[in-house]
Write a protein that binds this DNA or RNA. Structure first.
Lengths: 247, 247
DNA sequence: TCCAAACCTTGATCTGGGTCAAAGAAACGG
DNA sequence: CCGTTTCTTTGACCCAGATCAAGGTTTGGA
């Protein structure tokens, strides 16, 4: 669905880096310089963007589609450690290799900058460094919140937490925030959800069935979800911290 | 043990902010400005430095002792989301409230800067912003690595992972990196370890006993640990990523 | 020196979620 | 339109770790 063809946008007025990483406070000549070093890449669902440990010579943000950050043990156990939705930034200025695999979950288009020029631009443009610090702090908060999910929540709460996050992101993007009902398409397979939640795919499937049975969500097909009451969903997630969303 | 009395160091030559946050690349007049806005605070074991959600009007780093970052659910389940060892930085420039409780695990002394002046110093001093970005990226990496521990490792592997981290930090600080044997004092109670690892304290106790029985570690009293072979410990942690340590 | 409060260990038992297995849906290429 | 592949659901059973319970050990104050 997010599988936008790799249309090379020429003007990039909707390029997320513009309003998220570089942001409002930028001078127009800074934007100009960014435009000059910008390029697009696209990947098909399942493709690996970078492997953990490999040199990552670019930074960028997701334009369309969904990518995931994944850590793997030798014996094959994997844990997804982050989800990149459209407009999310990935990259580690000042750091060499990738710390985790970046994998395209759906077909994706990314807006990239080669690292060297981006870094030197950062040197000259405090606003960019500043904005990146803010974004990184936010990611750190999100990661730490997720640690609570992984360490202490039950399977049912985990599923509800994930659905809350997706619902929130989706509602923000689509401004569907009305009656408390939210509708969206799950961008992840049951297996990907399991990897994100530290569960098995069977447990994910069972708990989704249970939430459906209990009327917390409604499913059409495997992926199309209707949440009649977001408040109820957030209660199921056992959560404080999802606060701020629709309350 | 880390319970240094709140000796107000006048010259601060060993103040961690100097070499970690502000770092080598700073000009001496930047250091000068930092000195001017610096102050010390100390807390007793068990005291809460800030509550989640409260306004946090300072940033700082730990001089001595250990603090922990903790998230709590309404029903009392808690998850430790970070550990602050001496020289670690805490604070969120550009962000208002704390995202988690900061609690003194042992008696601690912190070196602080009021946020406002620190932020305005940051504006004028790109190196500081830059260093903070690097530190935050490192913390994010650590948090994501920990997500793998929480989501996918067994209780035994979790314990071994935690011991590896403490051993590594301790070895780095004390330069004990010799024969592969490392000796240190556990700075955490069994309960605190459980909160960090997403386990119960009983399970922690049992697994520590098991590691002792299997000769992976040796215990003297409840807290004094000898690790005869760090390599072995890292194997028990099931880990790749602890690489770089003593190999 | 003794008592009380923290901490820690160990045992018995229970259970949420994992594992193994089989069979439905959807999607897809030919 | 059909066979194959990929994804999902559901069932039966099992086990790692939680829970409940009871003692030990250490620390510290009076």
């Amino acid at each position: 669905m997010q599988a936008t063809a790799p249309t090379l946008m020429q003007d990039c007025s909707d390029c997320p880096i513009r309003h998220r990483a570089v942001c409002a406070r930028c001078e127009s000549d800074e934007l100009e310089r960014l435009e000059q070093i910008k390029y697009y890449r696209s990947f098909e669902a399942g493709q690996t963007v970078v492997w953990a440990g490999d040199k990552m010579d670019f930074v960028g943000s997701v334009v369309s589609g969904i990518a995931s950050l994944t850590q793997t043990m030798e014996d094959g156990r994997t844990q997804m450690v982050g989800l990149l939705l459209p407009s999310d930034f990935v990259g580690r200025p000042g750091r060499e290799g990738a710390a985790y695999d970046v994998v395209a979950t759906t077909d994706i288009v990314m807006c990239c900058f080669r690292k060297k020029p981006f870094e030197s631009l950062m040197e000259r443009t405090p606003h960019i460094a500043h904005r990146l610090l803010e974004m990184t702090l936010d990611e750190l908060d999100a990661a730490r919140e997720w640690m609570l999910v992984l360490g202490r929540k039950t399977a049912r709460e985990k599923i509800a937490s994930l659905l809350s996050i997706i619902a929130r992101r989706d509602a923000t993007l689509n401004a569907t925030a009305n009656s408390g009902e939210v509708v969206f398409d799950l961008p992840l397979t049951r297996e990907a959800m399991a990897d994100y939640l530290g569960l098995t795919l069977e447990t994910v499937s069972r708990q989704i069935s249970a939430l459906k049975r209990d009327g917390v969500i409604h499913l059409e097909g495997k992926r199309h979800v209707t949440v009649p009451s977001v408040r109820r969903l957030i209660e199921e997630a056992g959560d404080d911290s999802d606060g701020g969303f629709l309350v």
